[in-house]
């Protein structure tokens, strides 16, 4: 009695309040108890498994985003200090962004799709824009230890391996006789990683250079005469036993004088356009 009265009321309710349970897309089993029969159970299980496979397949199609056309990105990015080797780092990093969150220098930013799906949401540092000051705050907070914990002492700094600085002697003011030395004054390990020669010409000691990029950020020449070759583009001399492949042979092309000249001429063109 009471119930039928409510139904009458409900039919007068606005359209959006009315029941949609009788829509034709409603699955058949939605109102059925599980204690139907074995046929119903089987039908239910088959529908469920079909949906699981469909969902998994739909998700597995997403990596096709990798093949979207995209602009050539800025290849020379660095990982934060204490990062594991690149392949292990990608595996360990969850992309939670805690390192970027605690960075007081605002040098860590997160990747989008510009370098492909593999680097999505992982941290990067662009040294020329904002270099790492090696405060090691990011290494302390990483929840998955993709960044190994380091202390901001000299030993901690020595353990960092983000890349190696390379001087382009053709661009450097000091090498052309105009004494500069700005990179030396920016270096966190002056006298070790970066020594000065005659007319304050920078000389890199690859054994000590951690690749923080402070010299690259400080360089007064435009484009920068000193730049960091990131570790993932570096042909690690400790791993020379491997056969050189396209991947690990990239430093040769970077350090190759010819390509450096090519890069330089490109930069000169662009700087000419900006500042004729």
């Amino acid at each position: 009695m009471f119930g039928s009265g409510y139904i009458h009321e409900k039919n007068n309710s606005p359209k959006f309040m009315q029941s949609r349970a009788s829509s034709p897309r409603e699955p058949l089993l939605d109102n059925t108890r599980m204690n139907g029969g074995w046929k119903q159970k089987l039908l239910y299980r088959v529908t469920f498994l079909k949906s699981v496979v469909l969902g998994a397949a739909a998700t597995f199609l997403l990596p096709l985003l990798e093949f979207l056309p995209r602009k050539a990105g800025f290849k020379r990015w660095l990982r934060p200090p204490g990062a594991l080797p690149e392949s292990e780092f990608i595996k360990a990093c969850t992309g939670c962004g805690q390192c970027a969150n605690v960075c007081p220098n605002k040098c860590i930013s997160l990747f989008g799709l510009e370098e492909g799906l593999g680097l999505l949401a992982t941290p990067k540092i662009q040294a020329r824009a904002q270099a790492c000051i090696l405060c090691m705050a990011c290494t302390q907070v990483c929840p998955t230890d993709a960044l190994e914990k380091l202390e901001p002492t000299e030993e901690g700094i020595r353990a960092v391996n983000m890349g190696i600085a390379v001087v382009s002697e053709d661009l450097c003011y000091s090498y052309s006789g105009r004494t500069c030395g700005v990179c030396y004054r920016a270096c966190p390990l002056p006298g070790k990683a970066l020594r000065l020669g005659l007319y304050e010409t920078p000389i890199i000691n690859e054994e000590f250079c951690v690749g923080c990029g402070l010299c690259e950020q400080a360089c007064v020449h435009m484009p920068q005469a000193i730049r960091i070759v990131p570790r993932h583009q570096l042909n690690d001399p400790l791993q020379q036993t491997e056969e050189p492949t396209k991947e690990n042979n990239r430093l040769d092309s970077v350090l190759d004088r010819r390509s450096f000249l090519k890069v330089r001429s490109k930069f000169h063109q662009s700087s000419d356009q900006v500042n004729p």
Partner: peptide, 13 residues
């Protein structure tokens, strides 16, 4: 309405 297995599929995928 989809079967709720779809979200399990997304997790598995």
């Amino acid at each position: 309405s989809l079967n709720r297995g779809f979200a399990w599929g997304v997790l598995i995928g």
